[in-house]
Design a protein around this nucleic acid. Structure first.
Lengths: 168, 168
DNA sequence: TGTACATCAGTGAACGCGCGTTCACTGATGTAC
DNA sequence: TGTACATCAGTGAACGCGCGTTCACTGATGTAC
C-alpha cells in the first residue's frame, strides 16, 4: 500500500482497513506510523532482493545479473509499484523523512549493493559499473512511472533495458 | 520549498508564510494547491534547464554535456534539492499525483530530453545512450540524497560521476 | 487639481474533514489449580 | 474435567491538530470626470 501511494498518502486507517481491522488496534502492533513505515520498507526490501536472488543461492553470474535487470527495468515492474522495489518507489520521499525511515531505506539500498557484490571481490572499475547500473535501473523505473503512457516513456524504458542488457 | 520538502509536506500556509502573507490571499493567485504545484514544477524545470544550457545558446557540444553532467551529479546538487532539478526531487511523488501535476512533470522531463537533443538529429544508438545517461543521472541524485552521509553514498555518487564523464 | 468610485491583493476567521494517537472497554484464548 | 483468572488483540469513540478552501471584509491604488 505504501509503495503504491507513498508514505504520506497512506493513513493508519487505510492500512488497518486493508486487513479489515479498525484504527485503534494498530498500536498493539506498532509504536507509531514511523515504525510501521520502517518495517514495511525493510520487509519490501527483503522480498525484492529475495526475488532477484532466487534462482542461484548467493553466487550470481552474469546470466543472473541480466535476468535481474530484465525483471527490474520492465513494463511489469513499472506498472505495479505496490509489488515492486521499495527503493524505486520511495527513495526520494524517504530521504525527507525522519531518521528511522531514512535508515531503513539506506539498509534497503545496502542490501541491493550486497547482492550485487555477492559473487566475490570486484575491481574498482567493476564497482563503478555496478553503482552506475544501479543508478540507471532505479532512475529508469522512476522516470518510466512518471512518463507512463507517453511515447518518450516507452522509448526511455526500452532504451535503458537494451543498453543495460547488452553490457556496453 | 516543494522541492525541499515534497508536495504533500508543504502546506499553503507554509508557502504563503514564506513570503510573509496569510493563507487567505493564496486563492487570488492560484485556483488550488494542485495549480500551484504544477506551476512550481514548470518554473523549476525551466530554471534548471536554463542553467544547464546557459553557456552556449542551444547548440550543445560534448564539452557542454560534460559540464552539465558534472553539475547535475554533484555533492552540491544533492545537498540542495530546493534549488535543484524538480525531476530528481519530485518525479516519484508526482507520478502518484493528479493529472495536472503528472503532466507538468512529464513536460519537465520532455524539456530535458529536448535540451539533450538540441544539437541536431541522433542515431538510434545515440538516443539510447542519451536516455540511459538521463536515467543514470536522475537515479544517482535520488540515491545520493537518501544515502547522504554514508560511505556507500559517497562512493556511488563519485562512481556515477566518473563513469558518465569518462564516456564509457 | 481635486473628488468619487471601481478594482483587487491581501486579511483573518471559519468550514468540514482526515490525520496520528490515546484510552477505557470487550471478549476470546490459554493456563493454573 | 471443570472453574477462575490473566492476557492481550481488537473495538470504537474521543482528543487536539493542521489541512485545503471559502468568504465577508479592508484598504491601497489608479482611473474618470
Amino acid at each position: 500500500l505504501i509503495r503504491e501511494r507513498g508514505i504520506a498518502s497512506v493513513s493508519i486507517a487505510d492500512v488497518m482497513g486493508a486487513v479489515d481491522l479498525t484504527v485503534g488496534g494498530f498500536y498493539r502492533h506498532f509504536d507509531s506510523k514511523e515504525a510501521l513505515v520502517s518495517e514495511a520498507i525493510e520487509a519490501a526490501s527483503l522480498e525484492t532482493v529475495g526475488e532477484m536472488t532466487l534462482p542461484s543461492h548467493g553466487s550470481q553470474g552474469p546470466a543472473e545479473f541480466r535476468a535481474a535487470v530484465a525483471r527490474y527495468v520492465s513494463r511489469d515492474h513499472i506498472a505495479d509499484p505496490g509489488r515492486g522495489c521499495p527503493v524505486a518507489a520511495l527513495a526520494a520521499e524517504a530521504a525527507r523523512e525522519a531518521k528511522a525511515t531514512r535508515a531503513a531505506m539506506q539498509r534497503a539500498v545496502g542490501r541491493v549493493v550486497a547482492m550485487l557484490e555477492a559473487d566475490g571481490p570486484k575491481t574498482k572499475r567493476e564497482r563503478r559499473r555496478m553503482f552506475t547500473a544501479l543508478s540507471t535501473a532505479v532512475g529508469a523505473v522512476i522516470l518510466g512511472r512518471v512518463l507512463k503512457g507517453t511515447r518518450i516513456g516507452d522509448e526511455l524504458v526500452a532504451s535503458v533495458r537494451a543498453e543495460l542488457l547488452e553490457g556496453d
